[in-house]
Lab assay of single mutants.
Amino acid sequence: MQRVNMIMAESPGLITICLLGYLLSAECTVFLDHENANKILNRPKRYNSGKLEEFVQGNLERECMEEKCSFEEAREVFENTERTTEFWKQYVDGDQCESNPCLNGGSCKDDINSYECWCPFGFEGKNCELDVTCNIKNGRCEQFCKNSADNKVVCSCTEGYRLAENQKSCEPAVPFPCGRVSVSQTSKLTRAETVFPDVDYVNSTEAETILDNITQSTQSFNDFTRVVGGEDAKPGQFPWQVVLNGKVDAFCGGSIVNEKWIVTAAHCVETGVKITVVAGEHNIEETEHTEQKRNVIRIIPHHNYNAAINKYNHDIALLELDEPLVLNSYVTPICIADKEYTNIFLKFGSGYVSGWGRVFHKGRSALVLQYLRVPLVDRATCLRSTKFTIYNNMFCAGFHEGGRDSCQGDSGGPHVTEVEGTSFLTGIISWGEECAMKGKYGIYTKVSRYVNWIKEKTKLT
């Protein structure tokens, strides 16, 4: 034993070699072989497995989906700052455009905790909710729209109204504003409101030439003092309507412009014939205590009207009353817009006519005020429907199939267009061939041609 100890002390290297040989010859039971080890760690190889990531292109799944990435790591994937920024906006807080917040056709661009709407022409605001041009839906104005110097929408209202708090709607500024039905039992019968379409306001006024200088022999019209197929109006439903009495009662109609003036057809009036105007009328054979009678003290036909040349060209006249009318729910003026808007309103496509005229061709006159909704007829169809001249200051309205029309005794009465609950004068009943005849239409004086003249002559002093 002493000898062994001496050998170990003198030859430590020998001992180490012996131990190493023993270990190498022993069977290893701690580690699995290569094949079995792979069965336990069965993990798919990654895209760049075996390579240094710093030297390969980034992978979106590896960089940002398996674990949260930084902007720089995302930049490695896209290799483009702009594309990385677009991805980053949604990656950080989701897609803010998912709810489609942009209105009126706006395009949404996502941002971090926010979004941006790219608005089409005519709109602005956070969600493109603000109209900035009158060309689109009248700028959301209830009545009139004008573009300011910086191309912003400025709404306005006709006389007797003021802008509401929203700067879009119009509200009454006087007790009985024009064009409004205020009798409670008839307010439910107000005709369907007309909503502004998209309009090209630059070209809204037709490029028409008034044929002022045409000389033409007097034409022989049949029954051209021209509501057939209409309905009984309720008291106060058309408070701007008046009836004219002269040699015979209810020979023509008219509309209240203001307390002192009536507008009617020029062919209705004769110099030297006494005319009485009755406002607030409903049943011409009954006294309903809503009527107001006034005498006409002055007749002003349009300066281009000449019955000797043509009885229905420039067929418009103004009547001055001896005493002002007292405005109330049964006696209310009709609204008159400017030339541009009167023309736009007419193009809405349908209007209402009213009167006490004959209820059928050569038949009896109506006792109760009649009204009828009539569609506008395109000019080409209008011209083809008659052998008589249709001037540019006239328009056609009615039904091709016949059966409904204005008729004798309705002449001078109103053709009105309702705009968001307020009625505007767009025409004056003038003439036609018979009444409600198939293929024939009622012919009306186009008020847009005469609004400046009306307003100039009827100013209240």
Results as ranks from 00 to 15, higher is better:
339 K>G: 07
192 A>F: 09
146 K>D: 13
440 K>D: 15
4 V>P: 09
282 H>V: 11
170 C>W: 01
164 A>Q: 08
73 E>V: 00
188 K>L: 09
364 R>C: 04
186 T>I: 15
337 A>S: 03
375 P>G: 15
111 D>V: 11
312 Y>C: 04
116 E>D: 13
439 G>W: 04
403 G>R: 06
283 N>F: 10
32 L>I: 14
22 Y>F: 14
258 N>G: 04
192 A>W: 14
114 S>F: 06
298 R>N: 15
201 Y>C: 08
453 W>V: 01
242 V>W: 00
59 N>M: 04
209 T>I: 10
79 E>V: 07
200 D>S: 11
399 F>H: 10
387 K>C: 04
75 R>L: 13
269 V>L: 12
366 A>T: 15
386 T>R: 08
187 S>P: 14
365 S>R: 14
363 G>K: 10
352 Y>M: 05
244 L>T: 02
444 Y>K: 00
124 E>M: 12
358 R>P: 08
177 P>R: 01
40 I>A: 12
412 G>V: 08
61 E>D: 04
35 E>Q: 13
217 S>Q: 12
105 G>D: 06
383 L>W: 12
217 S>I: 11
321 L>F: 00
270 E>I: 09
20 L>G: 02
107 S>K: 12
446 K>I: 01
144 F>H: 03
11 S>G: 12
311 K>M: 07
43 R>H: 02
338 D>Y: 04
358 R>K: 15
263 V>T: 03
183 V>C: 05
370 Q>K: 11
362 K>Q: 09
271 T>M: 14
56 V>C: 03
412 G>Y: 08
31 F>S: 11
46 R>W: 01
85 T>Y: 08
237 Q>H: 08
17 I>V: 10
168 K>F: 15
110 D>I: 07
233 A>F: 07
333 P>I: 00
359 V>C: 07
49 S>R: 05
281 E>N: 06
252 C>D: 01
351 G>C: 04
414 P>R: 02
179 G>V: 01
303 H>M: 08
280 G>L: 02
436 A>K: 12
325 L>N: 00
161 Y>I: 01
185 Q>D: 12
367 L>A: 13
142 E>Q: 14
133 T>E: 11
452 N>W: 05
314 H>R: 02
100 N>W: 10
438 K>I: 06
241 Q>S: 06
336 I>S: 01
44 P>M: 11
202 V>D: 08
215 T>G: 07
134 C>V: 03
124 E>A: 12
320 E>H: 03
42 N>T: 13
138 N>D: 06
219 Q>H: 11
391 Y>D: 15
124 E>W: 10
130 L>H: 13
110 D>V: 07
156 S>Y: 13
16 T>I: 10
190 T>C: 06
366 A>Q: 14
420 E>P: 01
142 E>G: 08
366 A>E: 15
58 G>Y: 02
286 E>I: 10
99 S>L: 12
405 D>K: 14
310 N>L: 04
165 E>N: 13
386 T>H: 10
379 R>N: 05
238 F>H: 04
146 K>M: 14
90 Q>N: 14
284 I>W: 09
290 T>Y: 11
17 I>K: 02
439 G>A: 05
398 G>E: 06
42 N>A: 10
181 V>C: 06
189 L>V: 12
281 E>H: 12
242 V>P: 00
213 N>W: 05
379 R>I: 14
123 F>R: 08
254 G>R: 01
298 R>G: 06
451 V>S: 11
304 N>M: 14
109 K>Q: 11
420 E>L: 11
247 K>F: 08
244 L>C: 02
211 L>C: 10
351 G>R: 02
138 N>H: 07
274 K>E: 13
86 E>S: 09
233 A>C: 05
154 V>T: 11
244 L>D: 01
298 R>I: 01
20 L>H: 02
371 Y>L: 10
76 E>R: 02
192 A>N: 15
195 V>Y: 13
116 E>F: 12
348 F>C: 07
321 L>R: 00
387 K>Y: 06
334 I>K: 00
321 L>D: 00
105 G>C: 03
61 E>N: 04
431 W>K: 12
159 E>A: 10
186 T>P: 13
363 G>N: 07
294 R>F: 01
329 S>V: 05
412 G>W: 10
404 R>M: 05
325 L>K: 01
39 K>I: 10
297 I>L: 09
439 G>Y: 06
92 V>H: 09
355 G>H: 13
216 Q>L: 12
265 A>H: 02
293 K>L: 11
436 A>R: 11
141 C>M: 00
173 A>K: 10
204 S>E: 14
225 T>I: 13
92 V>K: 15
135 N>C: 05
55 F>A: 12
20 L>V: 12
88 W>I: 04
398 G>L: 04
333 P>C: 02
313 N>V: 10
107 S>M: 09
407 C>T: 04
101 P>L: 05
201 Y>P: 10
115 Y>A: 03
381 T>K: 07
416 V>M: 10
72 E>A: 09
178 C>I: 01
245 N>L: 08
26 A>W: 02
161 Y>Q: 03
183 V>L: 09
204 S>D: 13
202 V>Y: 12
